[in-house]
Design a binder for these strands. Structure first.
Lengths: 222, 222
DNA sequence: AGAGCGTCGTCATCGAATCGACAGGGACGA
DNA sequence: TCGTCCCTGTCGATTCGATGACGACGCTCT
């Protein structure tokens, strides 16, 4: 199973490469976007892990190139920043999934496995935590088989929390993720209110939204 | 039951072949359009699954060839892009049904079953949801045995919703599917109006068109 | 060609869902 | 114990979607 890693931060790149190799993957790594395109041009990878910001070519250019040329590789983007606009651009360009930094390596492994298991683009990755299942493509949240009606904002926040579990997500990250106008809700209690509403709608979903005072929020399995 | 798979993307081809074999089909696979024609020339398949874009010959050429030579094989096209023009070209060439990538494998299975169930040329409705039957080839909608008169635009939108059930279909997808000029109706409320008309024409068809505020629309069985 | 019909986009209006502001109270840490 | 941070109920503004009316356009039939 061949994986291409395109990431310019040497530390992170090494972690990913070594971790994947430990798990039996055959891994190539590049640190520039144009090098990534070259590799994709000449070799068939099953999965490519592509950083958003890179010298040479942006990650999104790499994704767009791969899609345009109909490469058979599943594309997983790594994004450091995370605004709705960015996310939409990434998925529109043809990424199959994305991970927001910082991420848990186990999570990366799980998504790589999910990507290699399915034909490109065919089945959306479903996020699961506890008794909750969250389908980003169907935009559907299900607890114990029953759909839960979330508003757009609630959904975005929950998705972020689930994707980052078990890390603490700070208010700034939440604001950037769920609001296009990145900083507006920081001065207000809009985030608090949304959290309250989320907790009310997901009373016993197999996890809790835990407040980490002064730092942010975190999802915790019960 | 013999099936021919013509698909150049190795990953997708393998998934389809293995999946069909798991379900008891005898499967042959090729990766080029001209090879597909050769196979169809010498063997009788019940169903052929044919990718639109392939090296050698385009999928549409394969379909046209099979029709011209009166092969007894039901033809299912796989199309990546999805504009009204493409779709019409495919069906005009003689495909019996089509699937838009990305698709769910269960959906593929269902359509293969539907195709093998009917003798070629005798058109049976292929899409069914609740008490609604929808025939993509004849562009006909039937509820409880009674035909419902839908306009072209209404039909296209309903078809998309049915095919994607139970996923949420966003306005952009609807616009691209039902309007050749992909972005025009996004700034207007044309989509809302069409939805309203659809709902009015299909009052108790065994499903509801559910609005997912801020995300799109979704078909829900009653 | 012209009448008649059907289709579809636009507009205006209405209703409802959503979301942030606010405020009072509670929890936590120093 | 005090100050700060957080929780949550209520309320109103705003946005978003639904729907009826209208008119432009294209087709068909005569």
């Amino acid at each position: 199973m061949r994986v291409l890693v395109a990431e310019d931060d040497k530390g992170l790149r090494d972690v990913i490469v070594l971790g994947l190799q430990d798990n039996g993957y055959r891994v190539d790594a590049v640190e520039r976007g144009d090098d990534a395109i070259d590799q994709l041009k000449w070799y068939e990878y099953d999965v490519a892990i592509i950083d958003w910001r890179m010298p040479g070519r942006e990650g999104i250019d790499v994704v767009a190139w791969a899609r345009k040329h109909d490469r058979p590789t599943a594309l997983l983007m790594l994004t450091a920043r995370d605004t709705p606009a960015d996310r939409i651009r990434g998925l529109d360009a043809g990424a199959d999934d994305y991970l927001v930094k910082p991420f848990d390596f186990g999570e990366l492994l799980a998504r790589v496995r999910a990507l290699q298991r399915r034909p490109r683009g065919v089945d959306a990755p479903v996020l699961e935590r506890g008794r909750l299942a969250l389908d980003p493509v169907k935009r559907l949240v299900v607890v114990d088989g029953r759909a839960v009606g979330l508003t757009a904002t609630e959904y975005l926040i929950l998705e972020l929390l689930v994707r980052r579990t078990p890390a603490v997500v700070d208010r700034k990250a939440i604001a950037e993720h769920a609001w296009a106008d990145e900083t507006d809700p920081l001065g207000s209690n809009a985030i608090d209110v949304q959290m309250s509403r989320l907790r009310a709608k997901l009373p016993s979903a197999g996890f809790r939204i835990v407040t980490v005072r002064g730092a942010g929020y975190r999802l915790e399995e019960v």
